[in-house]
Computed example of a mutant assay.
Amino acid sequence: MVRIEGIVAFVTTAEAGSLSEAARRLRISKSVVSERLAELERTLGAKLLHRTTRKLTLTEDGTTFLQRALRIVEEIKIGASEIAERRGTLSGPLRISAPVTFGRMHLGPALYPFLAQNPELQLVLDLNDRRVDVASEGYDAILRHGAIEDSRLVVWTLCRSRRVLVASPAYLERYGQPKTLADLDHHRAIHYTYRGVADWRFVTSAGPAVVRARPALGLNNGDMMRDAAVAGLGIALLPAFIIGPSVQDGSLRHIDIGHETQEEFIYMAHPDGRNPSAKLRAVVEHLREAFGDPPYWEKALPGRK
């Protein structure tokens, strides 16, 4: 008889691409994963994986069996979730990817009370700014800021968000206060370099406008961009959830040029075709309530609410 543990090990290994990563996700040793795969292959009488020291690939039989195995694992998850929901409890593993700065500043503090109220929930929160493939990397969902373009994702909006221009009082005293889009061309810019695009985009009555201020510093981390702006190195365009406290304490000033950036959102998304579990839906509802709409971090800022 085919054992469920073997099917889960096979699906996880196929998605992870390696035994080591599968073992990490399943929280068991690599040798146990290997044993479960070997037992599954013996039971089925077919080789499912080609394993070498450098890579792991599916055989033809493995590719065929994977489609069935994915459905089996998904049905088990749904069944376990329904039973937990009937009991009125949230339990079992949940793996979510989220941006580093937002996770540290807002997501963690919002989730800690929720986890304390649901001690049987086993959350793994992976903080990473890179774009992840939700399904193939074994995530139940991702949380992101901005636009989510992957059509294979089902997106829930948690709250609105926006980016604002900020600079330190010392910088503005030295270089002057920009009042128009054209004024920005003559200022020093602290740019976010992760996406490789060093420009600022605004919404005007004539349509989208792009500003390319003189680069003073390029960084791929929002915390460091904020700190560089506080240090007076230039103007930064940053999400309100990063700079709210600094504007409130006066170390940064909001720069109003008469135009807003395009409205963005904080999203939670899961792969299309998967029924979201009760625990994931509960996390989404909790975060919506915790963040508010407009979110609490924008209340200290002037302008759109």
Rank of each mutant, 00 (worst) to 15 (best):
P208W: 03
T43C: 14
A300E: 03
M225R: 15
V203Q: 11
V164H: 02
G79S: 14
I28A: 05
D61N: 13
M105K: 12
D129I: 00
D133F: 07
L252R: 08
S97C: 02
D223K: 04
M224L: 07
K55D: 08
A9N: 00
C159Y: 02
S205N: 05
A9M: 01
I142D: 08
A167V: 02
E263H: 10
H259T: 08
D272N: 10
I148W: 00
W200K: 10
R201W: 08
G176W: 04
E41C: 05
G234N: 06
L70S: 11
R24D: 09
W297P: 03
Q67R: 15
H191K: 09
T59Q: 05
G232K: 08
A16M: 09
R104D: 09
Q248H: 13
L107Y: 00
A46F: 07
H186M: 12
E60R: 15
L107S: 06
E298C: 10
G222Y: 01
M1W: 10
D185G: 15
W297K: 09
I7L: 12
L280V: 06
Y112F: 15
A209Y: 04
I7N: 06
P169K: 06
V230A: 15
R25M: 04
L40F: 02
R25H: 01
V134A: 14
R36V: 03
Y194W: 08
H254A: 12
A69W: 02
A216Q: 01
A213E: 00
L143G: 10
V166Q: 10
G250N: 05
I7D: 03
A141E: 03
S136A: 11
L219M: 10
E5I: 00
P109M: 10
F10C: 13
A14D: 00
N275I: 14
D133W: 04
L158V: 00
T193A: 13
T261C: 11
V8T: 02
A135T: 04
Q67V: 14
G218H: 04
L37S: 00
K279A: 15
R54F: 04
R162H: 09
A300M: 12
P271H: 08
K279Q: 09
Y194P: 12
E82W: 05
G45V: 06
T52R: 07
G222M: 01
M105C: 13
A231V: 03
G273D: 14
A116P: 06
I72G: 09
A240R: 12
L66P: 10
I190R: 15
E137S: 12
R174V: 06
E289Q: 10
P113C: 06
R71W: 14
T12P: 03
V2R: 14
E5R: 15
A23R: 10
L217Y: 02
R188K: 11
G196V: 04
R152F: 15
I257V: 12
K30H: 14
M225L: 15
G6V: 03
N128R: 11
S34K: 13
I4H: 05
V203P: 05
V32N: 11
T52E: 07
